[in-house]
Simulated scan of single mutants.
Amino acid sequence: MSEDTMFDQRRHHSQETNHDRYKRIKAEIERQMGVPEHFNFAEDVIEKWAKQRPDKVASHLLTDGSTESFASYSKLYKEAVLLATGLTNPTQPKCALVILPKIFEWWAVNVAGSWCGMIISPATTLLTANDVAHRISECGVDCVICDFDTACRLNDVTQGIPLRVLVSKSDDQVLSDWTSYDDLIKRAKSIAVEPCLKTKRDDVAQIFFTSGTTGKPKMVPHTQGSYGIGHIAAANAGRVRDNETL
């Protein structure tokens, strides 16, 4: 390549907007990795591992600094499909605001969202009522999924949301007008399993929000394809081997 050609390329790239640069890099990564036109993280990754290596550890969590819990790909896949089935009957939510600590159900909700096409907006349990109100108005939330403590704290601001799902640690953690996560799973076992939605790689799968340090937090979408690519990049960066868990 001549110096003139290299200069022309650098000049062209310097004139790109951030959005144009993102699109160019994204397209190049997808070309290199061969992401197909139709891609679904739940089906093409989680279900694949669940069938090939059902006992392989998918989730290894440490809570309270001492309590360890493990879940296989088979368990994650089965619970996610049941949850997706429960969430879509009778009417599937379009976008769920998920405010959970790092527990197994957090992963089950994320995989279920990909499976049925429900957009997930993950959020920290540190959010205030004002933070939640902003997210509800910005991304059209029609479902919220919380642990018990968070649900109690955000009960008022989430009143207008059609479906509120409560993830409880015990049977005595019950709130009026909240649907039990466990009840959704139980109900799904008695009806036909919801088939995986045939999604495209550019379909929005998740909506993150920026930190909001210089203004109101802004929405940042993850597609079905970019979500899967992100996990590949993280695994490669950490040099995770086939017999290891990230």
Score class of each variant (00 low, 15 high):
198 K>G: 07
123 A>K: 08
120 I>T: 10
238 G>I: 00
181 Y>S: 03
203 D>P: 03
235 A>G: 11
153 R>N: 15
179 T>V: 13
22 Y>W: 12
234 A>H: 03
118 M>T: 14
120 I>S: 07
118 M>Q: 05
133 A>S: 04
15 Q>S: 09
41 F>M: 11
65 G>P: 03
63 T>E: 15
137 S>W: 07
85 T>A: 00
95 C>Y: 01
29 I>D: 01
24 R>S: 09
37 E>N: 15
231 H>T: 13
155 N>M: 07
171 D>E: 05
127 L>D: 05
67 T>N: 12
130 N>A: 12
33 M>Y: 06
30 E>F: 13
15 Q>H: 06
54 P>G: 13
131 D>E: 09
9 Q>L: 15
66 S>E: 10
160 G>Y: 10
221 P>T: 13
157 V>M: 02
45 V>C: 03
87 L>G: 01
3 E>L: 12
38 H>V: 08
192 A>V: 15
114 S>C: 14
204 V>F: 00
38 H>T: 14
104 F>H: 06
214 T>W: 07
145 I>V: 12
238 G>H: 03
116 C>I: 11
158 T>Q: 02
75 K>L: 14
242 D>W: 13
227 Y>T: 15
165 V>T: 03
205 A>R: 03
16 E>H: 14
172 D>S: 10
102 K>W: 05
50 A>Y: 05
65 G>N: 05
20 D>R: 13
84 A>S: 05
127 L>M: 12
53 R>E: 15
127 L>R: 08
45 V>E: 00
232 I>R: 07
136 I>R: 02
13 H>D: 09
150 T>N: 06
100 L>N: 01
76 L>F: 07
22 Y>Q: 09
66 S>I: 05
166 L>K: 01
111 V>P: 00
10 R>H: 09
50 A>P: 03
107 W>F: 06
173 Q>V: 07
120 I>M: 10
211 S>G: 04
246 L>M: 13
101 P>F: 05
220 V>P: 06
81 V>Q: 02
170 S>D: 09
53 R>V: 00
208 F>Y: 11
150 T>E: 10
146 C>E: 03
227 Y>R: 08
136 I>Q: 03
166 L>R: 00
89 N>T: 14
61 L>W: 09
31 R>Q: 15
106 W>C: 08
30 E>V: 03
51 K>Q: 14
155 N>L: 06
209 F>E: 13
123 A>H: 04
131 D>S: 04
158 T>D: 00
108 A>Y: 00
22 Y>D: 14
135 R>Y: 06
47 E>K: 04
36 P>M: 08
64 D>C: 03
198 K>Q: 11
116 C>S: 11
120 I>A: 07
223 T>F: 02
135 R>P: 07
220 V>R: 03
139 C>T: 04
205 A>D: 06
67 T>P: 00
150 T>G: 07
87 L>Q: 05
22 Y>K: 09
156 D>T: 14
114 S>F: 08
63 T>M: 15
223 T>Q: 05
159 Q>A: 15
201 R>Q: 11
43 E>N: 05
103 I>A: 04
188 A>D: 08
195 P>M: 04
128 T>E: 06
41 F>L: 12
162 P>L: 00
51 K>E: 13
33 M>F: 10
190 S>D: 15
12 H>G: 07
129 A>E: 01
152 C>K: 09
172 D>F: 03
59 S>G: 10
